[in-house]
Nucleic acid binder design. Structure first.
Lengths: 373, 373
DNA sequence: CTGTTAGCGCCTTCAT
DNA sequence: ATGAAGGCGCTAACAG
């Protein structure tokens, strides 16, 4: 005895008018008598009429839903981006269909098909660490379904993207280590095919270069973004004939793990070895020692990406420009690189309260400048 | 020139057979010639046919999507639950439509309508801190759309729920504080109308009672789940004629904030004041001091809730039983309550690696036992 | 085993 | 300003 939902026909019958008029009244069509509209609206409200998005989607080819595909849901990064994106979508009446890939390429492909099958009006995508083929996303492009990559973007596709200033941020992080007197700076990186890793690695290299330190290949180690590898890798770094005095990790999870390992090995952080992360994940701020890292405006990233995506939908696919929006990361210096000062002012480390200052975006009209990095 | 997608009609035309046969072949209908099926499947594959979920949904009244409505996306808790739920859904071919409410009742109501409009086959819900009216969720119940609450459940509705052992876990947390010699134990709680807060408060009271400590109303303070209130509230607690020597916070975010405030006020944790949280959020493990807390199997909770929900859909609404699944929380003793021991074994504090042991579920056939608590 | 038909709920010409 | 009719892509009777 499931109380089925109210339809336009129901309203039409009760009011003894045609369903097309009801439809018009409900869709702000100007060609309808104000009185009629009032009656329809009143009844619709009273009956708690909910338009059936399925049939609307089927009819209009617009579902008012946006797909969001993320590589994982373990770190706080993607959920926060999603929250920002969702908020921006809701403001314009869009719903959000989400899917996580568990860093698995096959799952990503499957998820892309789900998005297609559900006729999303657009997709926000951040790829898995395994992804090197983009055919499944090209399909969207070909069909005129707008797609915006964020954070872990795809280098090959000329579509809009939202990223953090990976290169500059890395550069700043490493420059900070150099400024604090470090000479042997290791880099725990991720899969080499990922653009994001390349940019961060390049930033690392450039900073070393700029400050007269030689780039040593043996100090750059691929963690495959897997924390379980870190223990062994940190040990390896310490066993070098010229042991490292600093570690720049490609994200906070890796950095935190490195700190744990170092502490376990009775190394002092930052006195013996400084550690810098990337991302300012939840928890990094009140770790022991608090982690120096790059704060990324993740919620902002979600909003920006969604706004960009929604703005595309108003225009012709032909006019879509592969804009890359770059959000500035900000170096947050904490105790994992600098010994605590005597006086530290009180700052809430809870993300809901944390204030990010001076986050301005820049914009490039195409990918070339980015690739030049 | 958007390359529109392939439909059943397209396949039927190319194969010169009827669309119903194509449909049958695609839906594993037994009444179809194996050869025909092969041809259809082959062509569908070649053409990268994607069934249109909108029309299927419209026709069958089943969309294969589950709505998940969460109160917030700031802490790591809900994203992790969602990840678990999504995984369980994907295994059975279900997609997930998500919506966050930013702890706002009106948004929750709006989100419930979105779910209705999108014809989800069921919903997983955790309510906001403001929610005291459940009419919008009753609608689902009335329409025969299965609904399962998790974590922040609704006491009034007789529907399936998945929760942690709030009462017992609180009891254990407070008992642990007592065992470590604390006499004046404060409780930072949340909005009193929330069932989850009531249960945790009851657990706190019971533990005090059991160990001969008197319940002092002035030591129970409502934070409204807002970390910005904590500073003032902790100060208040310290200014009591008989100052507190321990704080049991209703979640980790509040607890972490309390620790920060205490440190700022030059109180030693745990020597002067012990702090216990609830939830074992990401980051609590490597905080300074590492936070003693209740580890909740959040990913497991998502999986359990989704499995429960999907299992309902196979049965008649009339036979749905308001089962409440209780997942055990586990007290994780860390440095915020006990001074660090000389030897600490190495444990990865990264959630992807963290091993949760002995998490067994219990099950009640109705809500009464729970309410009795 | 296959084809025909009808219709899910809605929007959108085309009439009036 | 309103009504009638057609169809989005698909499935589920009903015939054969």
């Amino acid at each position: 005895m499931k109380g089925s939902s109210i339809t336009i026909v129901d309203i039409a019958k009760k009011l003894n008018i045609s369903k097309s008029t009801v439809s018009r009244a409900l869709t702000n069509n100007p060609n309808v008598n104000p009185e009629t509209r009032q009656k329809v609206l009143a009844l619709a409200d009273q009956l708690a009429y909910q338009p059936n998005m399925l049939s609307i989607g089927l009819r209009t080819n617009k579902t008012k839903t946006i797909g969001i595909v993320v590589p994982e849901l373990i770190s706080s990064f993607y959920p926060t981006v999603m929250a920002g994106a969702q908020e921006a979508a809701a403001q314009r009446g869009f719903s959000v269909l989400t899917a996580s890939c568990n860093e698995n390429y096959a799952t990503e492909v499957a998820n892309s098909k789900v998005m297609l099958a559900n006729c999303v009006d657009g997709v926000l995508v951040s790829i898995t660490k395994e992804t090197i083929n983009y055919d499944h996303w090209m399909t969207f492009y070909r069909r005129g379904i707008p797609i915006v990559f964020f954070d872990r973007v795809c280098g090959e596709m000329m579509v809009p993207k939202v990223v953090v200033s990976d290169y500059e941020s890395s550069f700043n992080a490493v420059a900070h280590l150099v400024a604090s007197g470090r000479k042997r700076i290791a880099h725990l990186t991720g899969p080499a095919q990922m653009l994001i890793m390349q940019k961060r690695l390049n930033g690392y290299r450039a900073a070393l270069n700029k400050h007269g330190l030689t780039y040593d290949e043996s100090l750059v180690i691929d963690t495959d973004l897997n924390v379980t590898n870190v223990k062994m890798q940190v040990k390896y770094l310490l066993e070098q004939k010229q042991p490292v005095d600093a570690i720049f990790a490609v994200n906070d999870a890796i950095a935190m793990e490195a700190v744990q390992v170092l502490k376990k090995m009775n190394k002092r952080v930052p006195e013996d070895i400084a550690v810098v992360g990337f991302g300012d994940h939840y928890g990094s701020g009140f770790a022991d020692p608090a982690l120096t890292t790059i704060a990324v405006p993740n919620r902002e990233m979600g909003k920006t990406a969604m706004s960009l995506l929604l703005s595309l939908m108003d225009k012709e696919p032909a006019s879509w420009k592969p804009i890359t929006r770059i959000l500035d990361g900000e170096l947050v210096v904490r105790q994992s690189t600098i010994k605590p000062e005597p006086m530290v002012s009180y700052v809430s480390s809870y993300p809901g309260v944390f204030q990010m200052n001076s986050l301005h975006n820049r914009e490039f009209s195409d990918d070339k400048k980015l690739k030049a990095i």
